[in-house]
């Protein structure tokens, strides 16, 4: 299955191509949403549509890195109003043979695969969505 491969710092991640609508350059300034969880970077207006942008690094509880995020991966289907802020997008690759990720399992991670000798963490769109929803639940 073809996946969109992107990075958070040096870590590589993949999402099924069918779950991704498009990749855009983030605006110079996001509109910050007051009282939203910190992982919510803000909202942006994409051709008349309001998109909530989430920083993937914070969503997956990854440590902070030096590189500023440079791309927004916009999700498709029922998640059109959700975008993931990532370091960069590498391209589209065929990812086969996804095996269960070692260590702790989160619903956002479907598993790991090998791609060109390097590991890729394959994400689960629904799990990501659930993780975003979960951001709001403890605070409220």
């Amino acid at each position: 299955m073809r996946h969109v491969i992107f990075r958070v710092e040096k870590e590589r991640y993949g999402l099924p191509l069918s779950a991704v609508r498009e990749v855009v350059v983030p605006p110079a300034r996001f509109t910050l949403v007051p009282r939203a969880p910190p992982a919510i970077t803000g909202v942006m207006n994409l051709r008349g549509r309001v998109v909530t942008v989430v920083e993937l690094r914070q969503l997956l509880n990854l440590p902070e890195g030096p590189t500023p995020p440079a791309r927004v991966v916009l999700l498709d289907r029922g998640r059109r109003d959700l975008g993931l802020l990532v370091t960069d997008v590498d391209g589209i690759e065929a990812v086969e043979r996804i095996s269960t990720a070692p260590g702790r399992v989160t619903p956002a991670v479907r598993g790991v695969a090998r791609l060109g000798g390097l590991g890729v963490t394959v994400l689960e769109p629904e799990g990501l969505d659930a993780a975003v929803v979960a951001l709001f639940t403890p605070s409220k």
Partner: peptide, 14 residues
């Protein structure tokens, strides 16, 4: 705002 941000009170939209 998207369904996820609906729970942010005090904001009706963008």
């Amino acid at each position: 705002l998207g369904g996820r941000l609906r729970s942010v009170r005090g904001i009706s939209g963008a």
